[in-house]
Computed example of a mutant assay.
Amino acid sequence: MLTNDDGIDAPGMQVLEEVAAQIAHEVWVVAPEHDQSGQSHAISLHHALRISERGDRRFGVTGTPGDCAAIGLCHIMKDNPPQLVLSGVNRGLNLGMETVFSGTVGGAMTAMMLGCPALALSQAFKDRNNVPWDTARSLGAETIRKLLAVGWGKSAVLNINFPPIPAAEVGPMTLARQGEGAVAGMHVDSRIDPRGMTYHWLNFKRGDIQQGPESDYSAMRAGKIVVTPLRYDRTDDDAYAELAEHLPRFGQ
Protein backbone atom coordinates (compact mmCIF):
# COMPACT_ATOMS: atom_id res chain seq x y z
CA MET A 1 0.00 0.00 0.00
CA LEU A 2 1.27 3.45 -0.94
CA THR A 3 0.64 6.83 0.64
CA ASN A 4 2.41 10.20 0.78
CA ASP A 5 2.08 13.76 2.03
CA ASP A 6 2.45 15.64 -1.28
CA GLY A 7 -0.92 14.41 -2.53
CA ILE A 8 -2.16 11.60 -4.74
CA ASP A 9 -1.45 13.56 -7.94
CA ALA A 10 2.12 14.49 -6.95
CA PRO A 11 4.98 13.37 -9.25
CA GLY A 12 6.59 11.49 -6.35
CA MET A 13 3.53 9.25 -6.12
CA GLN A 14 3.87 8.34 -9.77
CA VAL A 15 7.51 7.45 -9.12
CA LEU A 16 6.54 5.34 -6.11
CA GLU A 17 3.88 3.49 -8.11
CA GLU A 18 6.49 2.64 -10.75
CA VAL A 19 8.90 1.43 -8.05
CA ALA A 20 6.25 -0.60 -6.23
CA ALA A 21 5.16 -2.30 -9.45
CA GLN A 22 8.64 -3.84 -9.67
CA ILE A 23 8.47 -5.51 -6.25
CA ALA A 24 4.78 -6.29 -5.63
CA HIS A 25 2.17 -8.33 -7.47
CA GLU A 26 -0.54 -5.91 -6.34
CA VAL A 27 -0.27 -2.21 -5.47
CA TRP A 28 -2.88 -0.10 -3.70
CA VAL A 29 -2.74 3.69 -3.30
CA VAL A 30 -4.44 5.49 -0.41
CA ALA A 31 -3.16 9.06 -0.39
CA PRO A 32 -4.28 12.59 0.48
CA GLU A 33 -6.37 14.49 -2.05
CA HIS A 34 -4.22 17.58 -1.47
CA ASP A 35 -0.73 18.47 -0.21
CA GLN A 36 -0.40 17.59 3.48
CA SER A 37 3.28 18.41 4.00
CA GLY A 38 4.25 19.19 7.60
CA GLN A 39 1.31 17.26 9.10
CA SER A 40 3.60 14.83 10.94
CA HIS A 41 1.55 12.04 12.58
CA ALA A 42 -1.70 14.03 12.73
CA ILE A 43 -4.99 12.12 12.82
CA SER A 44 -8.31 13.84 12.07
CA LEU A 45 -10.57 13.36 15.09
CA HIS A 46 -12.83 16.40 14.73
CA HIS A 47 -14.02 16.26 11.14
CA ALA A 48 -15.27 13.60 8.76
CA LEU A 49 -13.06 12.05 6.08
CA ARG A 50 -14.22 11.43 2.53
CA ILE A 51 -12.84 8.83 0.13
CA SER A 52 -12.88 9.13 -3.65
CA GLU A 53 -12.03 6.35 -6.09
CA ARG A 54 -9.30 7.57 -8.41
CA GLY A 55 -8.87 4.43 -10.49
CA ASP A 56 -8.23 0.73 -10.00
CA ARG A 57 -7.03 0.27 -6.39
CA ARG A 58 -6.40 4.04 -6.10
CA PHE A 59 -8.16 6.12 -3.45
CA GLY A 60 -7.92 9.77 -2.49
CA VAL A 61 -8.67 10.78 1.11
CA THR A 62 -9.55 14.25 2.40
CA GLY A 63 -7.11 13.95 5.28
CA THR A 64 -3.54 13.63 6.46
CA PRO A 65 -1.01 10.88 5.67
CA GLY A 66 -1.82 9.37 9.06
CA ASP A 67 -5.50 9.37 8.16
CA CYS A 68 -4.66 7.64 4.88
CA ALA A 69 -2.68 4.93 6.63
CA ALA A 70 -5.56 4.33 9.04
CA ILE A 71 -8.23 4.39 6.31
CA GLY A 72 -6.19 2.06 4.14
CA LEU A 73 -5.27 -0.50 6.79
CA CYS A 74 -8.42 -0.38 8.92
CA HIS A 75 -11.06 0.13 6.23
CA ILE A 76 -10.19 -0.18 2.53
CA MET A 77 -7.79 -3.12 2.94
CA LYS A 78 -9.13 -4.40 6.24
CA ASP A 79 -9.93 -7.88 4.89
CA ASN A 80 -6.76 -8.17 2.80
CA PRO A 81 -4.05 -6.17 4.58
CA PRO A 82 -0.86 -5.25 2.73
CA GLN A 83 2.50 -6.79 3.52
CA LEU A 84 4.27 -3.44 3.28
CA VAL A 85 3.44 0.27 3.33
CA LEU A 86 5.56 2.75 1.35
CA SER A 87 5.19 6.47 2.04
CA GLY A 88 6.58 8.94 -0.52
CA VAL A 89 8.42 9.57 -2.66
CA ASN A 90 8.61 12.95 -0.95
CA ARG A 91 9.63 16.03 -2.92
CA GLY A 92 12.64 17.04 -0.83
CA LEU A 93 14.71 15.39 1.86
CA ASN A 94 13.48 14.30 5.29
CA LEU A 95 16.51 14.31 7.58
CA GLY A 96 17.39 15.36 11.10
CA MET A 97 14.86 17.35 13.11
CA GLU A 98 12.62 17.73 10.06
CA THR A 99 11.51 14.11 10.40
CA VAL A 100 9.46 15.25 13.42
CA PHE A 101 7.31 17.43 11.15
CA SER A 102 7.31 15.19 8.08
CA GLY A 103 3.98 13.85 6.88
CA THR A 104 5.88 11.29 4.80
CA VAL A 105 7.44 9.88 7.96
CA GLY A 106 4.14 10.30 9.82
CA GLY A 107 2.24 8.16 7.33
CA ALA A 108 4.80 5.39 7.63
CA MET A 109 4.86 5.67 11.42
CA THR A 110 1.09 5.35 11.63
CA ALA A 111 1.18 2.24 9.45
CA MET A 112 3.88 0.75 11.68
CA MET A 113 1.80 1.53 14.77
CA LEU A 114 -1.09 -0.35 13.12
CA GLY A 115 1.09 -3.42 12.67
CA CYS A 116 2.37 -3.12 9.10
CA PRO A 117 6.07 -2.76 8.19
CA ALA A 118 6.65 0.62 6.59
CA LEU A 119 9.26 2.67 4.76
CA ALA A 120 9.40 6.43 4.21
CA LEU A 121 11.12 7.51 0.98
CA SER A 122 12.30 10.98 -0.02
CA GLN A 123 14.16 12.49 -2.96
CA ALA A 124 16.52 15.37 -2.18
CA PHE A 125 17.01 18.15 -4.71
CA LYS A 126 19.22 21.17 -5.34
CA ASP A 127 16.75 22.95 -7.61
CA ARG A 128 13.04 22.94 -6.65
CA ASN A 129 12.10 23.12 -10.31
CA ASN A 130 14.34 20.24 -11.34
CA VAL A 131 13.89 17.39 -8.86
CA PRO A 132 16.00 14.36 -9.93
CA TRP A 133 13.14 11.88 -9.77
CA ASP A 134 15.03 9.40 -11.94
CA THR A 135 17.38 8.71 -9.01
CA ALA A 136 14.60 7.36 -6.79
CA ARG A 137 12.90 5.78 -9.81
CA SER A 138 16.06 3.91 -10.83
CA LEU A 139 17.29 2.88 -7.38
CA GLY A 140 14.06 2.55 -5.39
CA ALA A 141 13.14 -1.06 -6.11
CA GLU A 142 16.65 -2.41 -5.52
CA THR A 143 16.92 -0.43 -2.28
CA ILE A 144 13.63 -1.78 -0.96
CA ARG A 145 14.48 -5.37 -1.94
CA LYS A 146 17.78 -5.20 -0.06
CA LEU A 147 16.14 -3.83 3.07
CA LEU A 148 13.39 -6.46 2.98
CA ALA A 149 16.05 -9.17 2.67
CA VAL A 150 17.87 -7.84 5.74
CA GLY A 151 14.75 -7.14 7.80
CA TRP A 152 14.30 -4.78 10.76
CA GLY A 153 12.47 -4.54 14.09
CA LYS A 154 8.70 -4.17 14.22
CA SER A 155 9.00 -0.99 16.32
CA ALA A 156 10.94 0.95 13.69
CA VAL A 157 10.24 2.71 10.40
CA LEU A 158 13.09 2.95 7.92
CA ASN A 159 13.57 6.50 6.65
CA ILE A 160 15.21 6.42 3.19
CA ASN A 161 16.62 9.50 1.44
CA PHE A 162 18.00 9.53 -2.10
CA PRO A 163 20.73 12.12 -2.80
CA PRO A 164 20.25 14.93 -5.37
CA ILE A 165 22.61 13.47 -7.96
CA PRO A 166 22.22 11.17 -10.98
CA ALA A 167 21.68 7.50 -10.14
CA ALA A 168 24.99 6.48 -11.71
CA GLU A 169 26.86 8.74 -9.25
CA VAL A 170 25.08 7.58 -6.09
CA GLY A 171 27.17 5.82 -3.46
CA PRO A 172 26.11 2.63 -1.69
CA MET A 173 23.18 2.45 0.69
CA THR A 174 24.45 3.60 4.09
CA LEU A 175 23.11 3.34 7.64
CA ALA A 176 23.12 6.65 9.51
CA ARG A 177 21.73 8.17 12.70
CA GLN A 178 19.25 11.03 12.80
CA GLY A 179 21.38 14.16 12.96
CA GLU A 180 20.63 17.61 14.28
CA GLY A 181 19.30 18.67 10.90
CA ALA A 182 19.31 22.14 9.39
CA VAL A 183 16.35 23.68 11.27
CA ALA A 184 17.63 26.71 13.18
CA GLY A 185 14.27 28.21 14.15
CA MET A 186 11.00 29.44 12.67
CA HIS A 187 10.12 32.57 10.76
CA VAL A 188 6.69 34.21 10.69
CA ASP A 189 6.00 36.17 7.51
CA SER A 190 3.06 38.53 8.14
CA ARG A 191 1.15 40.09 5.25
CA ILE A 192 -2.04 42.03 4.52
CA ASP A 193 -4.75 40.54 2.31
CA PRO A 194 -6.88 42.60 -0.18
CA ARG A 195 -9.49 43.20 2.55
CA GLY A 196 -6.94 44.70 4.91
CA MET A 197 -6.79 41.66 7.20
CA THR A 198 -3.49 40.30 8.48
CA TYR A 199 -2.43 36.74 7.66
CA HIS A 200 0.74 34.79 8.37
CA TRP A 201 3.02 32.19 6.72
CA LEU A 202 5.25 29.93 8.79
CA ASN A 203 8.65 28.95 7.42
CA PHE A 204 11.71 27.18 8.75
CA LYS A 205 14.94 29.04 9.32
CA ARG A 206 17.85 26.85 8.27
CA GLY A 207 21.50 27.04 9.22
CA ASP A 208 24.78 25.20 8.89
CA ILE A 209 24.60 23.07 12.03
CA GLN A 210 27.27 20.59 13.11
CA GLN A 211 25.87 17.14 12.41
CA GLY A 212 28.35 14.55 13.67
CA PRO A 213 30.18 11.79 11.76
CA GLU A 214 27.31 9.25 11.69
CA SER A 215 24.52 11.69 10.87
CA ASP A 216 22.03 11.36 8.06
CA TYR A 217 22.95 14.81 6.74
CA SER A 218 26.63 13.90 6.54
CA ALA A 219 25.80 10.71 4.63
CA MET A 220 23.54 12.65 2.26
CA ARG A 221 26.30 15.19 1.54
CA ALA A 222 28.59 12.27 0.71
CA GLY A 223 26.14 11.16 -2.00
CA LYS A 224 24.84 8.02 -0.28
CA ILE A 225 21.37 6.50 -0.12
CA VAL A 226 20.69 7.20 3.54
CA VAL A 227 18.78 4.73 5.73
CA THR A 228 17.82 5.67 9.29
CA PRO A 229 15.59 3.56 11.58
CA LEU A 230 13.10 5.75 13.44
CA ARG A 231 10.81 4.84 16.34
CA TYR A 232 8.02 6.27 18.48
CA ASP A 233 9.94 5.95 21.76
CA ARG A 234 11.40 9.43 22.27
CA THR A 235 12.76 8.87 25.76
CA ASP A 236 16.08 10.73 26.06
CA ASP A 237 18.46 8.31 27.80
CA ASP A 238 20.95 11.02 28.86
CA ALA A 239 18.27 13.20 30.43
CA TYR A 240 16.65 10.13 32.00
CA ALA A 241 19.91 9.12 33.67
CA GLU A 242 20.52 12.66 34.92
CA LEU A 243 17.02 13.00 36.34
CA ALA A 244 17.32 9.55 37.94
CA GLU A 245 19.95 10.97 40.26
CA HIS A 246 17.28 13.20 41.80
CA LEU A 247 13.98 11.39 41.19
CA PRO A 248 12.92 7.83 42.00
CA ARG A 249 12.40 5.56 38.99
CA PHE A 250 8.95 4.05 38.66
CA GLY A 251 8.95 0.36 39.53
CA GLN A 252 12.14 0.50 41.58
Rank of each mutant, 00 (worst) to 15 (best):
M173C: 12
W201V: 04
S215I: 07
V170K: 03
E180W: 14
A239H: 12
L243D: 08
R234G: 02
Q178L: 13
Y217V: 11
A182G: 06
A182R: 15
P213S: 15
G223W: 04
I209Q: 06
E180R: 15
H187N: 11
K205L: 11
Q178P: 00
S190L: 12
T174L: 03
R206S: 09
A239G: 01
A222P: 01
D233I: 14
T198I: 10
A244L: 06
N159W: 03
I209L: 11
R221P: 00
L158A: 09
V157Q: 06
G179P: 06
D236R: 06
K154D: 13
Q252G: 11
F204C: 00
I192Q: 05
A222W: 07
G212N: 10
T198E: 15
L202N: 10
G196D: 04
D208L: 13
I160T: 04
H187A: 11
V183Q: 02
K205C: 07
P164C: 11
M197C: 03
P229G: 04
V170A: 05
P172A: 03
A219D: 06
D237H: 14
W201N: 10
R231H: 08
R234S: 07
Q210T: 12
R191D: 08
R206T: 14
R206I: 13
V157I: 11
D193P: 07
K154A: 14
L243T: 02
I165F: 05
V226L: 10
V170S: 09
F250M: 10
A156P: 00
N203I: 01
V226R: 05
V227K: 07
P229F: 08
L243M: 14
A184D: 14
D193R: 01
V227F: 12
L158P: 03
R177I: 02
G171M: 03
I225T: 09
H246L: 15
A184E: 10
